[in-house]
């Protein structure tokens, strides 16, 4: 079935409905794509940043650990909305930026939003992983030392694998939190799910249909993320489950 036909079938179902027309549903769909894209990319980069940062956060070098602490402190201590405003409206007025290659990234709302979201989720994820690394059982470390492992090998083979497993439930929460936090992207003109709902709301003055519909989409997204993490936990945390044979 071609897209055209699909749209016609949908239009048939929507006959007589003022608010949910093919147009507004298209808007919701674009919003869905934008939200998923924004959240997925920022989580991916945030995760990649958080692993080395979490290791560095526990470094014996004061300069390294303190500066990473300062970074997470700032990003966890201020509202994401403020960070987004600074990234979007702030950078645009740095002198000379409009003529530099950076302007390509600043002029589009997507990149400043990605920047703010990524640094924010990286800060939270760093603290989650750091907590998990710190709580590694002493016995495991002693055993690794007794085997003569170097620090790097111990980190790679013993500490990180078990820390990631322990961090998994908390990280799953962070992913869902990020999905919900992304609802503010519409203040910098990104047409995300909430932006689409805002549009329908202000065009038809119908807050209930516009926002309840979008709430269901967010809920479906949250449930699928939860399902994914539950599946992961089932596989990876099997050794922590009560043994009821």
């Amino acid at each position: 079935m071609s897209v055209e036909q699909l749209l016609q079938t949908i239009a048939g179902y929507l006959n007589g409905n003022d608010i949910f027309t093919v147009n507004t549903l298209g808007m919701y769909w674009d919003g869905f794509v934008n939200t998923v894209q924004l959240v997925f990319i920022s989580l991916l980069i945030g995760l990649a940043l958080a692993v080395p940062l979490a290791i560095g956060r526990g470094s014996p070098l004061k300069l390294v650990s303190k500066s990473i602490w300062l970074y997470t402190y700032i990003f966890r201590g201020t509202p994401l909305l403020i960070q987004l405003y600074l990234a979007y409206y702030g950078f645009a007025f740095v002198p000379g930026i409009q003529d530099s290659w950076l302007w390509f990234f600043v002029q589009d709302p997507l990149y400043p939003a990605l920047f703010a979201f990524t640094l924010n989720t990286a800060a939270y994820t760093t603290e989650i992983f750091h907590g998990a690394i710190k709580s590694t059982a002493k016995g495991e470390i002693e055993a690794a030392r007794a085997f003569g492992m170097s620090k790097a090998m111990m980190m790679r083979r013993i500490i990180l694998p078990s820390a990631f497993r322990r961090a998994l439930p908390a990280y799953g929460n962070e992913v869902i939190f990020m999905l919900h936090a992304s609802a503010i992207a519409s203040v910098v003109t990104i047409m995300d799910l909430t932006g689409a709902a805002y549009y329908v709301y202000s065009r038809f003055y119908a807050p209930f249909p516009a926002f309840i519909f979008v709430a269901f989409i967010y809920m479906a997204l949250s449930f699928s993320i939860q399902g994914f993490f539950r599946h992961l936990e089932k596989r990876l945390l099997v050794h922590l489950k009560p043994n009821n044979r």
Binding site: Q98, Q107, P109, T189, G195
Partner: peptide, 29 residues
């Protein structure tokens, strides 16, 4: 509403206040 219906091929950006529009047109967005 007018731009959304009549200028479907343009890249329409929607702002919460008129001041935000001025800021963004000034910065070249």
């Amino acid at each position: 509403n007018y731009v959304t219906d009549e200028y479907a091929d343009a890249n329409i950006k929607r702002y919460a206040t008129a001041d935000d529009i001025v800021i963004d047109i000034e910065s070249g967005r």
